[in-house]
């Protein structure tokens, strides 16, 4: 590391320490220990009460019930981002497989990825499906799931995924199924005489004696599928080798 870097870092760290110590001991910022009225309402009513989402996880009940439309449009933004990525790559023809000679990674990396990917799928499913009970939810679980195809693309190749049927088109179909199911879930309460994205009286709070918090578990499940498949499609597109990509697009010459 150069000398200038050390000086700059030292100055910045000293500044941060001085400011934080100054705020704590001299400025006497009041430490708030009580919850604001709106927060108190959410805390009291997320499980008990007349307006409850029947979920002990306050964040998820805010995300998919109280402020549900926000999350719905957030999902819409993510949908548009993936669509624009697909439009940028504009690949319609089927690409040919390039066989490059090489050893690849050692068996240590490959076997580790084989074991770890199963673990990550299990953990991400737990994050998403327990989203109404513990911290986590559909988006968190889905983005954890998207790490699996990424690891496989890096350790093996993208053809290892496509040979097993997980092509860009399959990922897009799975993602569309997830998104359409979310839209249907949004519209179900309207058909039952309620409001858009209404949760509890329409959906049952317990299914087979298990707490499912109405529609929260379904929203989390379909968001999990949609986010995981959406990221997978983008990774499959990005991992196309540059040579093949130029051949398909037919643009600039090497």
């Amino acid at each position: 590391m150069k000398r200038g870097h050390i000086i700059a870092l030292g100055v910045f760290i000293a500044l941060i320490l001085l400011v934080s110590l100054g705020i704590t001991f001299v400025g006497k910022v009041p430490m708030t220990t009580d919850v604001r009225p709106l927060g108190l309402f959410y805390l009291k009513n997320s499980y008990f009460g007349n307006y409850a989402a029947r979920s002990p996880e306050v964040v998820t009940s805010i995300l998919w019930d109280y402020r549900g439309l926000d999350t719905l449009f957030e999902t819409g933004v993510f949908f548009l981002a993936i669509i624009s990525a697909l439009a940028l790559f504009r690949i319609e023809k089927k690409e040919e497989k390039v066989k490059e000679k090489g050893e690849g990674f050692t068996f240590i990396v490959k076997d580790t990825v084989r074991i770890i990917s199963v673990l990550i799928v299990a953990v991400s499913a737990a994050i998403a499906l327990h989203g109404h009970l513990t911290p986590g939810g559909g988006f968190q679980g889905g983005s954890a799931l998207a790490v699996v195809p990424l690891l496989i693309i890096v350790a093996f190749s993208k053809y290892a995924l496509e040979g097993r049927g997980l092509t860009k088109d399959t990922a897009m179909i799975v993602r569309s199924i997830g998104l359409i199911s979310i839209i249907i879930l949004v519209l179900i309460p309207l058909a039952a005489g309620g409001y858009l994205m209404q949760n509890l009286p329409v959906f049952p709070s317990h299914i087979l004696g298990q707490l499912t918090s109405g529609s929260l578990v379904f929203y989390n499940l379909f968001e999990y599928i949609a986010v995981g498949a959406g990221f997978t499609a983008v990774f499959l597109l990005l991992s196309i080798p540059e040579k093949v990509f130029h051949k398909i697009i037919g643009g600039e010459k090497e």
């Binding site: 911290p135 939810g137 988006f139 968190q140 890096v154 990005l238």
Partner: peptide, 26 residues
Amino acid sequence: APDVLLAYIAIAIGIYTALLVFVISK
């Protein structure tokens, strides 16, 4: 903020890093 953490750890360390590595390779 465990909810933020779960999204952040997957995106900032896994997905974001990998996206940038793909971009650098191009």
